[in-house]
Amino acid sequence: MTVSDETTRLATASTPDGAPTPERGPEEVFEATVAAEGRIEPRDWMPEGYRKTLVRQIAQHAHSEIIGMQPEGNWILRAPSLRRKAILLAKVQDEAGHGLYLYSATETLGVDRTELTEKLIDSRQKYSSIFNYPTLTFADIGVIGWLVDGAAICNQVPLCRSSYGPYARAMVRICKEESFHQRQGFELLMTLMAGTDAQRAMVQDAVDRWWWPSLMMFGPADGDSPNTQQSMAWRIKRHTNDELRQRFVDMTVPQAAALGVTLPDPALAWNDERQAHDFGEIDWAEFTAVVKGAGPCNAQRIAHRRAAHENGQWVRDAASAYAAKHADRSEEPAA
C-alpha cells in the first residue's frame, strides 16, 4: 500500500451523513462527520473555534513554505553543479507551489492571501522556526532535504487525513513532493559522503547544526502544547508532538548510520524495553527564544519577505488596473 493511494482514497471518501435534518442540528452533523472520519467541506457548518484553528494552522504552514524558500534559495546561484542547480531551483519552485495550494485552502475559510501575507510580515503570524537558522554550506541543502523535509513529512503525512477536506487534499499533493525532496537531499548527502574529506566534514558540520532544530520542528513537549487536545478531537491533528518526534528519531537513526554521520546527541540509544530510541533533552530555552523572534535569522527572513512583497506592490497594482480596464472595455457597447 502506498500513502498516496490510500490517502487519496480517504481524502475523497464522502461525508457519511448528509445535510442536517429537522432532527439533527448542524452541530450534531459536524460532530458525527468528524467522529466517523468524514470530511468537512467549505460550505458545511463548522464551529468558529474549528475554523480559527484551521486558519491559524494552515496559514502557519503556508508561511513556512514561503519563508522556507529563503535558506535554500541562498544556494541556487552558487550550486556547484548544473544538475544540483536544477534540483534546487525546482525544489524552491515546489515550495512556492505548496504555499499557493495552502493559501488557496485558507481562502475556502474566508481568509485571503494578502491578509495573511500582511500578518506574516508584521510578525502577527508564525512560521516554522527551523527556517530561522542559516544555510552556511552546500551540505546544508542536503541536510535540509533529509532532516527538515523528513520531519515535515512525519508531521504532514497524518494531515492527509485531516478532517478539513481542502487541507487534506492539499496535503496529499504536498507530501508526495516533500518525499521527493527528502530523497534528493539524502542522495546529495550520499554523494558528499563518498567524496572528499572536505565534503564529508561539511556534511557532519551541517548535521551537527540542524539535528536539534529538526527535533524542535515537532513543537513543544505534549505537556506544554495547549492546543493539541482540541485539535486531535477535531481530527485536525492526528498524533501528539512527542509521538511524531519519536517516530522521526526512530526513522532517522538508521539513515544516519547508512550515511556514516554521527547525530550530535550522546544520550541517543536504542531502548529495548520501549522498542524505541531514547534521546537527550531538547534545549527548550533556545526553542522558546527562536519562536519569540530571537533566532539567528528571524529578522532577516521577515525583512526579506517584506521587501519582496512591498517591492512587488506596483506590479500587482498594474495587473489589477489592467484587468479592470480590460473588463470595462469588454463591457462597453460596440461603437
Partner: peptide, 28 residues
C-alpha cells in the same frame, strides 16, 4: 500508528512522474 502513515511508504511512492524539469529528477 497506522500503516498508511508510514513515511517510508511515502518515500517509495514518490516515483518519477514526468513532472520534474529535465535534469532535476533521478532519471537523467
Amino acid at each position: 500508528m497506522d500503516a498508511d502513515d508510514n513515511v517510508y511508504d511515502a518515500l517509495a511512492a514518490a516515483d518519477h512522474d514526468g513532472r520534474w524539469a529535465h535534469g532535476a529528477g533521478f532519471d537523467e
